[in-house]
Amino acid sequence: MTTTSERLGLTPSQTVGPYLSIGLTWEDGPYVVPEDTPGSILVTGRVYDGQGQLVTDGLVETWQADPDGRFAHADDPRGAVESQLPGFRGFGRCNTDADGSFRIVTVKPGPLPTPDGDTEAPHLNVSVFARGLLDRVVTRLYFPDEAEANAADPVLNAVDPDRRATLIAEATPDGYHLEIRLQGENETVFFDV
């Protein structure tokens, strides 16, 4: 008797893709806040693989505090607090498109206290899912107009000074832009979480 796998052959194993567009997207994904929210900003970027090629089938997620530096989540050590900003979700998700780019509509988060009394600079937590990855990679986006806060940020200070620039976005007319390089020259700093 011939089994199905003998008849059809084995299915090749998959990493994260191509199922991102089937199971992980939703219509409001790139909107951490509604587009017409006062003070909203556009966070854009592109994702590159280890050969410098654009990743056109990836997914970028962001998670962040609200403008007051609070999370409506049980992991906030000060207690979960609903944001006073109407429509704020704290979470965004966007597929990369044909030119490897992503777009998230959000607001700038506030600074965060650390358990030992320090302060983290305003930042977005960023996860990237892409072909060739068995699990997501996690990084941060820091804001270039927060130089003083960035200089005191304990996480950013733990990064080799020569690589910190990979975490600091560039200002654009309507927000901020971050290039994410998964490997190779100018590889983005990723965190083991």
Score class of each variant (00 low, 15 high):
Gly184Glu: 13
Phe102Met: 07
Gly69Glu: 02
Leu24His: 14
Gly69Thr: 05
Thr188Val: 02
Val193Ala: 08
Val107Asn: 00
Val60Thr: 07
Glu27Thr: 15
Ala165Cys: 07
Val107Gly: 01
Ile104Val: 14
Phe191Arg: 02
Pro30Ile: 09
Gly117Trp: 11
Asp68His: 05
Trp63Arg: 09
Val137Cys: 05
Pro161Arg: 12
Val138Ser: 11
Val159Leu: 04
Arg78Gln: 12
Val107Ser: 01
Tyr31Arg: 12
Gly17Phe: 07
Ala130Arg: 05
His73Met: 05
Asp160Trp: 12
Glu146Pro: 03
Asp162Arg: 10
Ser13Lys: 03
Val189Phe: 10
Gly69Arg: 01
Asp57Phe: 10
Arg89Asp: 06
Leu8Gly: 02
Pro154Gln: 04
Pro161Tyr: 14
Asp66Tyr: 03
Leu59Gln: 15
Asp174Leu: 00
Thr114Met: 02
Phe190Ser: 06
Thr3Ile: 01
Ser13Arg: 04
Asp57Pro: 11
Ile104Glu: 07
Asp28His: 10
Pro144Asn: 04
Phe190Pro: 12
Val138Thr: 12
Pro122Tyr: 06
Val33Asn: 09
Ala98Met: 05
Glu170Gly: 02
Val189Cys: 01
Phe91Gln: 04
Val126Ala: 01
Thr166Arg: 00
Thr11Trp: 07
Phe190Arg: 01
Gln14Val: 10
Val60Phe: 08
Leu10Cys: 00
Phe91Thr: 05
Glu27Ile: 11
Asn95Gly: 11
Pro122Asp: 07
Asp118Val: 00
Ala130Met: 07
Ser21Phe: 06
Pro34Asn: 09
Asp174Thr: 14
Ala80Pro: 14
Val128Lys: 06
